[in-house]
Simulated assay, not measured.
Amino acid sequence: MALYGYARASSLSQSTEIQEQKLYEVGCSVVRKEKISGASTEGRDELKTLLEFITEGDTLVVVRLDRLGRSTRDVLNIVHALDQKKAFLRVLDRNIDTSKPEGKLILTVLSMVSEMELSFIKERQKAGIERAKTKGVYKGRPSSIDHEKLLQLKRNGHGATAIAKELGCTRSAVYKALNRLK
């Protein structure tokens, strides 16, 4: 019956240090951390490792629910995976513990509220950008790609992969830049 901590930051510039400290303070014997978006469970190898490692009676501990996942479905899938192993989830900031009957209910409601709030934030952001665009204030993030070099590489017969490698960007960035330049 061990406590295992999971700390996550969304970007490389953010730190998991405070989360890790809290997780160790509540008695987690192991804390796994990663810096990756919580929009999906895809690519979250440290979380996957914990879910594979946890056994009956163990508890996965997170500081905040949004560190576990942004979508209700992902959070509930994680809880289901823990249930299958007869393990539990504990969320420190809301005092949620799925080893108690009310814990699962509270977790489900809070997951739904978190997902709804995220969609509201995105809607407000989109509306703000649209208003700024109509005023001519918002033009998007400036391109970091050297368009002259991109066009020269394209004229020389290089494909998107080679261009992306040469320019130090992604293939999708190359395609977007080419479409804008048409």
Rank of each mutant, 00 (worst) to 15 (best):
Leu65Thr: 05
Leu60Thr: 03
Arg90His: 12
Lys122Ala: 14
Gln84Lys: 15
Gly128Ile: 05
Asp45Gly: 02
Thr49Leu: 10
Leu118Ile: 11
Leu60His: 03
Ser119Trp: 04
Gly38Asn: 10
Glu52Arg: 10
Lys126Leu: 12
Phe88Leu: 01
Asp58His: 10
Thr59His: 04
Gly103Tyr: 00
Val113Asn: 10
Asp83Ile: 01
Lys122Thr: 08
Pro101Glu: 01
Gly69Thr: 07
Ala87Glu: 08
Phe88His: 14
Gly128Pro: 12
Leu50Gln: 04
Thr41Ile: 15
Thr49His: 14
Leu92Phe: 05
Ile54Trp: 07
Thr49Glu: 13
Leu50Phe: 03
Ala87Met: 08
Ile54Tyr: 04
Lys104Ala: 02
Ser111Ile: 03
Arg44Asp: 03
Ser111His: 01
Asn95Phe: 01
Asp45Thr: 12
Leu89Val: 11
Lys100His: 09
Asp97Asn: 15
Arg94Ala: 12
Ser99Pro: 00
Asp97Tyr: 14
Arg70Ala: 09
Met116Gln: 04
Leu105Arg: 06
Leu50Tyr: 03
Val113Pro: 00
Asp93Pro: 00
Val91Gln: 08
Glu123Trp: 04
Ala132Leu: 08
Leu65Phe: 01
Ser71Asp: 14
Leu50Glu: 01
Ala127Trp: 05
Glu56Leu: 01
Phe53Gln: 15
Asp74Thr: 08
Val63Tyr: 07
Arg44Ile: 09
Asp97Val: 07
Asp97Phe: 11
Val75Leu: 07
Ile78Asn: 04
Arg90Ser: 13
Ile54Asp: 05
Ile54Gly: 00
Met112Lys: 07
Ile121Tyr: 13
Ser37Ile: 09
